[in-house]
């Protein structure tokens, strides 16, 4: 089992299943793929993975969610894990929020819904390459 994980956060389950399928299809068994419906759950997942010795390397997060918003969540993640690749995937987001995320969470990319699979995968890939270099 891989020791690196990619986490998708979105309050829409359908979105999560699709994302997981697409990422699984593209990256195969190189990584562990986890999904969470909110920032709080995302943190649970992160803790669980950490217990199993799995490290988060990339997070794809929606912006508009109940509770903690995507920008806030990504900034918190960045504070704890500065190397995590952060991607914002959202149908609607506040411009200020995005700029804030770029500034404080070292946002790798912002992708609007509906998204193109290739674009998203290329973005994640480029983020991971940057990480490895």
């Amino acid at each position: 089992m891989s020791s690196q994980a990619i986490l998708c956060v979105d309050d829409e389950q359908i979105v999560l299943w699709n994302l997981r399928d697409q990422i699984t299809r593209n990256f195969g068994d190189r990584f562990v793929y986890e999904v969470a419906e909110s920032a709080d759950e995302a943190w649970e997942v992160i803790e669980d993975l950490a217990e199993d010795g799995v490290k988060i390397i990339a997070i794809v997060s929606d912006w508009l969610m109940p509770g903690t918003k995507g920008d806030e969540f990504l900034i918190q993640v960045h504070d704890r894990f500065p190397n995590v690749v952060t991607v914002m995937l959202t149908g609607q987001a506040d411009r200020e929020a995005i700029e804030r995320t770029y500034q404080f969470a070292n946002l790798h990319a912002y992708i609007a819904k509906p998204w193109d699979e290739t674009t998203l995968m290329d973005t994640i890939r480029s983020g991971l390459e940057k990480l490895n270099s």
Partner: peptide
């Protein structure tokens, strides 16, 4: 409008990716 955009885009996004998934 923002809410509606989100509400429309989300299912559209799902459909798009679902179509891709289906074909794969």
């Amino acid at each position: 409008v923002a809410g509606i955009a989100h509400e429309i885009n989300t299912p559209l996004g799902v459909i798009q990716s679902a179509i891709g998934n289906l074909s794969v």
